[in-house]
Every structure is written in structure tokens, then in C-alpha cells.
Simulated scan of single mutants.
Amino acid sequence: MKVLLDAKPTVHQAIEALRTALAGGLDPDADPARSVVPVPAGQLLLMPASWGGFTGVKVASVAPGNAERGLPRIQGHYLLLDEPTLSPLAVLDGVAITSVRTAAVSAVAAAALAEPEASRLVVFGTGPQAHSHVAALRAVRPVRDLVVVGRDPARTQAFVAQYAELSARAGTPADVADADLVACCTTARAPLFDGAALPEHATVVAVGSHEPEAREVDDTTVARSTVVVEAIAAGLREAGDVVQAVRSGALAEEDLVPLADLVCGRAVPGPGPRLFKSVGMSWEDLVVAAATYRAAVGT
């Protein structure tokens, strides 16, 4: 077994691997449900999957208090195994895989949903996922202008300073009115902006939560949008943005569009804004871990 903690997936590798897997017949609804175990400091997550000759499992911890300690909120490793024999092949950096795969899934969705010339990006959040989403969305759309909305002015300005080539600036939720793309990458539990302000052509990706009682977008955004999810069952189980909108009557379950249907051309977005709600699934980690392993060992 190889220890490949220094092997980091690139966003382009991850986007291509995820798109190829979906186009090749991977069924996200076949994923086992995520196991979430509460512990005093936060949560332990267990995420297994099998596909394409590999089996794997991510073991991750989520410790909300770590930010005050200067430590990562999410930590963990990925164990990759040979599918036929279940022999361990490698241990990889679970945080690196999570960071890249989450944004890469958003990019796969945005490539099918966003206007071809989408250039104005508004990002909510200033953490690792916000950075990953800037990189991933730039990989699929010609982003030239970046607005960053954060809670901490100093962190927001530090984030903005890293993207001078994009005419980046700090902004407010009202900036969604001029956005082509909106990326919600926060730990918010309540909507971040007024969905009535979204332009008709805008595409929103929301990735910050996997709990039924937490959401980043409001009912107005959901009701106006074509709503795409990684998998119907996972969305109805874990995506607060979806669960609460269904509960309020703003969204009908049968109107949800699976990401695989979009990628394979079995569904097309309707008029109005487009929303991709991601909760993060085990198959995504496996596909990206396998691609990282192949690149590292030259297979």
C-alpha cells in the first residue's frame, strides 16, 4: 500500500474524472448514505463508495471550534482499495480531495448550466472552498470580475488581494444583482441573499451545508430556478436548501433534476436562474481519489 499524502488532485483532473464517470453510467443514487456520528468536538463522517475498479472510504472529522485554534475545520484521510480484492492500494489526503472535488462537481454543473460567456462571479465565503470554487469556475467559464462577500473585513480583503488579475473587490449580498455566477461556500444556516435580485440568466452553486436545517439560498431563489442536485435521495435527505423549500411548497420533489441527467443530455435547464445544490457525496471522493492515484503511480 502506498501513502500518497503529497499527491494533490488538480481541478482539471477532477472535473474531467467526474464528468467522465457520470457520462459513463455512474449512478449517484446508488451511493450509500453518509454516516454522521456526533462527538463532543463536532462530527465524524464515514463515506464509502465503489466504482470503476476501485472501492474507497473517506474518514473525516468536522470540528467547528478549530477555527479559533488556527486549525482546519475539516480533517481526514482517504483509503483507496482495489475493488475485486478489497486490497488497500493507497492512503491519500482526504482534505485535499474534498477541497478539489467539491468545487469540481460545481464546475461540472456550471459547465452545463451557466451562460457560455459568464464572466462576473460573486463568491460568498473566504475559506478553502471559496478559493477552490474560484479556480474551478474559472476552468469552465471566462471569469473576469470577482466580488467577494465575507463576514470578516480583514479576511475578505486578504482574499481579494490574491485575485488582482480578476479586478477583484469586496462586496455585499446586493452584488448578486449583477452576477453571472454565484458561489455560496459558507457555514451559514440562513439565506445569504435575496433571490428576487438574481438576474434571469444567473447560475448559483451552493455547497456549504449538508444538514436539513441549514441553507444558503432562500425560497425565492429555489422557486425561480431550475434546481439541480447530485442525487434526488441525497438532496431530499441532506440539502436544507431543498428540504425547506419542499416543506414550504416553493419546490416540488418531481421538479428536481439529477446532475447525471444534465451531464448526459437527458435534461436541460428551463428559463430563469439555475441552482446547483451540492451536499458532497462518497462517489465524488472515490472518483477523484482514483484519478489522483492513477496520476501518482502512472497508470
Rank of each mutant, 00 (worst) to 15 (best):
D178Y: 04
L113I: 13
L71I: 04
G127N: 10
E238Y: 12
V242C: 10
N66P: 00
L146T: 03
V143Y: 11
M47P: 01
Y163P: 00
D175Y: 05
A135H: 15
A33D: 05
A30T: 12
L44S: 05
P9T: 05
S278I: 01
A161C: 06
P258V: 10
P28R: 07
A135I: 13
P212Y: 06
P72N: 05
P153T: 08
V57Q: 06
A296F: 10
D27I: 14
V297A: 07
D29T: 12
G76L: 13
F193I: 04
A130K: 08
S50Q: 09
V147L: 02
A41K: 15
Y78C: 01
T10G: 15
C185G: 05
R19S: 12
T226K: 10
V229W: 05
A170Q: 08
A33Q: 09
R151L: 15
A234T: 13
G65E: 12
A267I: 01
V227N: 02
D255F: 04
P88M: 10
T187Y: 01
T220E: 13
V246N: 05
E83L: 14
F54P: 15
A197R: 11
M47W: 01
D180K: 03
A170H: 04
K58L: 13
I97T: 04
V228H: 09
A296T: 10
A7K: 08
E213Y: 11
A179F: 14
S132R: 13
P153C: 06
D241R: 01
A112M: 04
P173T: 04
S167Y: 09
V228Q: 03
E165D: 14
P28E: 03
E16T: 14
T98M: 11
L262Y: 02
D241G: 04
L89W: 01
G25Y: 15
V263M: 08
F159G: 00
I74E: 00
L5F: 03
L92W: 11
Q157F: 03
D31E: 12
M1E: 00
S99A: 13
A130E: 00
M47Y: 02
L86G: 06
D218H: 12
A49Q: 13
S50W: 00
T299W: 02
Q13I: 02
I232Y: 07
A231D: 08
V62T: 05
A296N: 04
V288A: 02
V143A: 13
Y78L: 00
E284G: 13
T203K: 07
T102Y: 05
V105S: 09
V140Y: 03
P273M: 08
P32S: 08
P64W: 11
V227P: 04
D152V: 07
S119Y: 13
L22W: 09
R141A: 15
A161F: 04
V182W: 02
